[in-house]
Amino acid sequence: MHDKQNHLYVGVDLHKQHHVAVIINCWQEKLGEITFENKPSVFSKFLLEMDKRTEKGVTLAFGLGDVGGYGRSLAQFLADHG
């Protein structure tokens, strides 16, 4: 198995009120989409949902498209939670 297959890639489109996360694999196949509020109190639920969609041994790689600082709190949360 190629190393790229051990990762899922999560691109997060950041907005003032909510964020949209799109999950793809190394073949750029869309595996899912999650919309969640831009509130730190919701970020733990978002990570739990990501864990449900991730097989054991697969690492998540996040990419955040930040506009106007809307993703700062999410970026800090992700960094704090490995």
Rank of each mutant, 00 (worst) to 15 (best):
N38F: 01
F77H: 07
I23G: 00
L78H: 05
L31W: 03
E37M: 05
M50N: 05
H7R: 08
L14Q: 08
K16S: 12
M50W: 03
K45I: 11
G57I: 12
V12Y: 06
H7N: 02
I24P: 00
E37V: 05
G63Q: 09
K52G: 01
G68E: 06
D3E: 12
K4N: 05
C26K: 06
K30F: 09
T54A: 06
G63N: 15
F62L: 15
G11P: 00
Y9N: 10
E55W: 01
V12M: 14
G65P: 00
F77S: 00
H7Q: 10
D66M: 13
G65F: 15
W27C: 14
I23D: 04
L48S: 04
A61F: 08
Y70H: 13
V20A: 10
E49S: 01
Q17C: 07
V10Q: 05
Q17R: 14
V67Q: 13
Y70F: 15
D80S: 10
H2A: 08
K45T: 12
K52V: 02
I23H: 04
L78D: 03
R53P: 08
I24L: 09
K16P: 07
S44L: 08
T59F: 12
T54Q: 07
I24M: 08
M50Q: 11
N25L: 04
S41T: 11
K39W: 03
L47N: 04
L47W: 01
A75C: 13
S41H: 14
Q76G: 00
G57Q: 12
A79V: 13
F43C: 05
E29Y: 07
D13H: 03
G57M: 13
D51Y: 08
Q76K: 08
L78W: 06
E55V: 01
G68A: 13
R72A: 11
H15M: 04
V67W: 07
K45H: 14
L48F: 08
V10H: 01
L74K: 03
K39V: 14
G11E: 08
S73W: 13
L31R: 02
G63S: 14
L74E: 01
D13I: 04
L78Y: 09
M1L: 14
L14W: 07
T54L: 08
V67E: 07
L31T: 01
H81L: 14
E55Q: 02
L8T: 03
S44F: 05
I24T: 07
T59W: 10
V12S: 15
H2L: 09
K52W: 06
D3K: 07
A75Q: 04
D51A: 00
